[in-house]
Design a protein around this nucleic acid. Structure first.
Lengths: 205, 205
DNA sequence: ACCTGAACACCGTTCAAGT
DNA sequence: ACCTGAACACCGTTCAAGT
């Protein structure tokens, strides 16, 4: 049994995903991943230039899954406003359900020389594009106060929505959300999504 | 020269802060910190139970600095609305000016068993308290649509404001903010803060 | 109490070698 | 092309020992 599988690259990513889910951390060792995949500790170097490259591939998987979850949530929504809330809720749920994976997607682990690798930047741009579509839809049907012809205005709306949901997800993961009242997590999510919508809503909506 | 300084604990934290600023990363080694402080590689264990404890102490320093920067920004502001915008801007500026420190304050590096250590939780609670005060002030003078007697409502407003600013800071650090238009960073900050304020503002403001 | 030096079980990465 | 085993320069942490 010389070659364990036709696709060790794929097997390594899967092993890393398993470790992510099991340990709830992304600081596992490359050697541990290799062990899981049943190969020697440096077989990964035949498929990835270094550990960072493997992590980046795993990170891209995260963006794909997140996109899948949010797109699915938006389907069947009548209005743009409903779709945006559904996306926000699905986004937060994904983060809280995949803590380590979500952290990896955005953390310093993927950054090289202070910059995210290109595949991650592309995935993030796609995520912004998804949000942009919804917001433009809402701008055209009058539910959002966004000028569809003003690129800055759109970018501001997109980034404010993403920032709020992203920030909340991370604070919730870190356990740094409000504990003042015995507020249930779901209720708090409702409340912050309400504020997000209010920030985008047009006055006559 | 047996004891290098009366306060090695302090010296180690300073050395770590130096490394943070120089390398722009928080994944330096404990041994490197010891080297910087001019002591053997395990002298730190006389002052910290493990590496995590040193990082936590450095993280707390970050919260203190961040608090100092935001409190200073709020001083001299006439209205609660102005104060909140000033705080938001100072917050983002701090994050972008102390990338590694900011990432450390919230990242997995400090988490043990999926939970942030108590000193960090306390610092975060203090940060929420600061926001809460401003928001309550704005609620009483009528500039924010927050019910001062409804704890949930307050918590929702606090978390939505913090989430937005926190999320934006991290996305900007990661370089994942909009690049569609040739939007300047400062302009984008203005736009997202505007959306934040709109999410909090009362209709008659 | 505070620090040192040796030691242990790990890393990521490289290299020569095997098929 | 794909994988192995030995090797290198590191880690975090522990332990016995020194003042």
């Amino acid at each position: 049994m010389t070659y364990h599988h036709g696709d060790l690259r794929h097997a390594l990513i899967d092993a890393a995903l398993d470790l992510l889910a099991e340990t709830q951390r992304w600081d596992f060792s490359l050697r541990e991943v290799a062990r899981r995949a049943g190969v020697s500790h440096n077989a990964p170097y035949a498929h990835f230039p270094d550990k960072n490259a493997l992590l980046a591939a795993v990170g891209v998987r995260g963006y794909e899954r997140l996109r899948g979850a949010t797109v699915a949530a938006a389907e069947g929504c009548q209005t743009a406003a409903q779709a945006l809330v559904a996306i926000g809720r699905a986004y937060i749920t994904f983060g809280l359900g995949n803590v380590a994976h979500y952290r990896l997607m955005f953390g310093q682990a993927l950054a090289v020389d202070g910059q995210m690798p290109e595949p991650i930047r592309a995935a993030a741009a796609a995520a912004r594009g998804l949000l942009r579509e919804i917001i433009l839809r809402g701008a055209r049907d009058g539910s959002f106060s966004v000028d569809p012809d003003n690129g800055d205005d759109i970018a501001g709306a997109v980034m404010s929505a993403w920032s709020l949901v992203h920030g909340f997800t991370l604070l919730a993961i870190d356990g740094l959300t409000s504990r003042e009242t015995e507020l249930e997590a779901d209720r708090l999510i409702d409340l912050i999504l309400l504020r997000m919508m209010k920030g985008l809503a047009s006055k006559d909506a």
